[in-house]
Write a protein that binds this DNA or RNA. Structure first.
Length: 434
RNA sequence: GUCCCCAUCGUCUAGCCUGGUCUAGGACACGAGCUUUUCAAGCUUGCGACACCGGUUCGAAUCCGGUUGGGGACGCCA
C-alpha cells in the first residue's frame, strides 16, 4: 500500500496539515507501505521557497520521514498530456473564450463512495459544474493534478481532511474517465480552533515551527496530534510515535471534529520535559538559553547546566518557560522583581545574612543537608522562624519569590555565587535604607 | 441558497459496528484536601456528558427516522 501527504508551499505547515501527515505516516508504517511526500506547487505566484523549507524542516522535526519526494511543478508536461487524452476522447473541451483552458465535461450520475471512516457517501454529480483541468496559463488545477499524480504514484489510500469530501466526486469522475483504478478514501475530521470554527492564529493555527520556538518538544506535539481524532486505547494518553505504529489503524480514527486545546498540549509537554533524559534536555534547552544571552558556545559548564535543569525540569511546561525560570542561575547580577523587592525590604535581616554568609563560607561539605542545618541554626540564633528568613534569602539569591527547594537551590548555585549574592543583598539593603 | 459531513462531561476521548455487564470509564481544565520554606510537581477527592423528539425492542449512549445545533464545500486557490 502507498499513501501520500501533499502540502502546498503557499503557507507554513500548520496543526491540521501536520495531523493529516501524521495519520498518513502512521498508517504507512503500521501497514509496511510507502509514504510519499508530494509538494503541490502548481501555483507559481503563491508558492514560496521559504514555506517549502519550513514544511520539510517541520516534518523532519516531528519525526515524519518520507520514502519519496515529488514536486508537481516538475510534472506539468504529464498533466498536459493527460488533458490532451481527455480532449481526444471528447471527455473534455477547450474553453470557448480562446484562453487555452481545458475543461472537463461533468457526467450526470449518482456516485457512491465507500469512505474508510465515514462509510457510504453519495453524491449527485449533476449538481457539479464542468471542471477546469488546465488553466489558461497551462498549469493544472488542483483536482486534476491530484488525480493524475495519485494514479501515477500508485497511491492506494488517500487520507486527508474531510474538507476534501466535496472534492472527492470531482476526482472520482476523473479516475473513471481516465480508466484509473480507484484508491480507497479516508476523510479524517478537521481540527477546530478554540472557538469551534476554523483555526485562527489565536486558536493555534500557527506554524509547526512556531511551536518549536515556543519550547514544545516534538514528541509532545506529535503525541497531542495523535490524540486528536484517535486513541491508543486502555485510557493511555502518553504514547511515543514509535509505539503508536503498532496500535494505529486508520479505521479507528474518529468522525468528529476536534477542538484544539492548548492546555492539554501544555500538560503533555510538561510530562515530556519531566521524563526527558537530562543530557537530552540540556541539548534542547541550550538554544533557548543562548537566545536569552544566558550562555554562549564557549562559556558554559555542562555539568552546572544539568544540575540546574534537575531543579527545574518538573516545574515547567515549555522550554521557554524553563529557560526563563532558571535564568537567574546564569546571570551575574540578579534582577529583583517588584513583588520580591517588597518581601525583601520588609525588614532588616542583614545580621542574619551576615551570619549565613560566614557559616556558608566555612562549610566543608556544601550539600543540601548541611546547608539546611546551618540555615536552621542561624535562623534560630537570630530568633527568626524558617519562613521569616527563607523567603528573603530566596529573593536575595534569585530575585524571585518562587522557585525550587531552597537548599538544593543553594547547593546547585554553588558556594561562590551564593556568598556573592548574599553580600550583594547586604549592600543593597544598606544603600536602600540609607 | 445548494450539496456534504458530524453530534458522549467546558475540552480531548473510551463505550456504539456485534443493544443488557453503563447509577457511562479515563485525561486536560476547574474546586477541595494532603504534602510543604515559596511556586510547581505528586497523591487523594469533588464537579461534570449520552443535543432533542419519535420509532424498533422485554431492554437503546448503542439500531432507524426526523428536528435542532455545529462544521465543511460550492475558484482558471490548494
Amino acid at each position: 500500500m502507498r499513501v501520500r501527504f501533499a502540502p502546498s508551499p503557499t503557507g507554513y505547515l500548520h496543526i491540521g496539515g501536520a495531523r493529516t501527515c501524521l495519520f498518513n505516516w502512521l498508517y504507512a508504517r503500521a501497514q509496511g507501505g510507502s509514504f510519499v511526500l508530494r509538494i503541490e506547487d502548481t501555483d507559481q505566484a503563491r508558492s514560496k521557497k521559504e514555506y517549502l523549507e519550513e514544511i520539510l524542516f517541520s516534518l523532519k522535526w516531528l519525526g515524519l520521514d518520507w520514502d519519496e519526494l515529488h514536486y508537481q511543478s516538475q510534472r506539468f508536461d504529464i498533466y498536459r498530456q493527460v488533458a490532451q487524452k481527455l480532449l481526444d476522447a471528447g471527455l473534455a473541451y477547450k474553453a470557448e473564450d480562446g484562453s487555452g483552458a481545458v475543461i472537463f465535461r461533468m457526467p450526470q450520475k449518482t456516485l457512491e463512495i465507500d469512505d474508510m471512516i465515514h462509510g457510504k457517501i453519495t453524491f449527485d454529480t449533476g449538481l457539479i459544474k464542468d471542471q477546469v483541468l488546465i488553466k489558461s496559463d497551462q498549469s493544472p488545477t488542483y483536482n486534476f493534478a491530484c488525480v493524475v499524480d495519485d494514479a501515477a504514484m500508485q497511491i492506494t489510500h488517500i487520507i486527508r481532511g474531510d474538507d476534501h469530501i466535496s472534492n472527492t466526486p470531482k476526482q472520482v469522475v476523473l479516475y473513471e474517465a481516465l480508466g484509473y483504478p480507484l484508491p480507497k478514501f479516508a476523510h479524517i475530521p478537521m481540527i477546530l480552533g478554540a472557538g469551534g470554527g476554523r483555526m485562527s492564529k489565536r486558536a493555534g493555527a500557527t506554524a509547526i515551527s512556531e511551536y518549536r520556538s515556543m519550547g514544545f518538544l516534538s514528541g509532545a506535539l506529535v503525541n497531542y496530534l495523535m490524540l486528536l481524532g484517535w486513541s491508543p486505547g486502555n485510557n493511555q494518553e502518553i504514547i511515543a510515535l514509535k509505539d503508536a505504529i503498532a496500535k494505529f489503524d486508520i479505521q479507528d480514527a474518529n468522525k468528529t471534529a476536534a477542538t484544539f486545546d492548548m492546555n492539554k498540549l501544555l500538560w503533555l509537554n510538561s510530562q515530556y520535559i519531566k521524563s526527558c533524559p537530562i543530557e537530552e534536555l540540556a541539548e534542547l534547552v541550550k538554544p533557548f538559553l543562548k537566545e536569552r544571552n544566558l550562555i554562549s558556545d564557549n562559556n558554559f559548564d555542562g555539568k552546572y547546566l544539568e544540575d540546574v535543569l534537575q531543579l527545574f525540569k518538573e516545574r515547567a511546561s515549555t522550554l521557554a518557560e524553563l529557560s526563563d525560570a532558571m535564568a537567574f542561575f546564569f546571570v551575574k547580577d540578579v534582577a529583583m522583581d517588584p513583588a520580591a523587592a517588597e518581601k525583601f525590604f520588609a525588614q532588616d535581616l542583614n545580621a542574619a545574612f551576615g551570619a549565613l554568609r560566614s557559616r556558608f563560607a566555612q562549610l566543608s561539605d556544601f550539600s543540601p543537608p548541611r546547608i539546611e542545618e546551618d540555615f536552621r541554626r542561624t535562623a534560630a540564633e537570630m530568633g527568626l522562624s524558617t519562613k521569616q528568613l527563607i523567603h528573603p534569602l530566596r529573593v536575595a539569591l534569585s530575585g524571585k519569590t518562587v522557585g525550587p527547594g531552597m537548599f538544593e537551590m543553594i547547593a546547585t548555585l554553588g558556594r561562590d555565587r551564593t556568598l556573592e549574592r548574599i553580600e550583594r543583598a547586604i549592600q543593597l539593603y544598606k544603600n536602600k535604607s540609607r
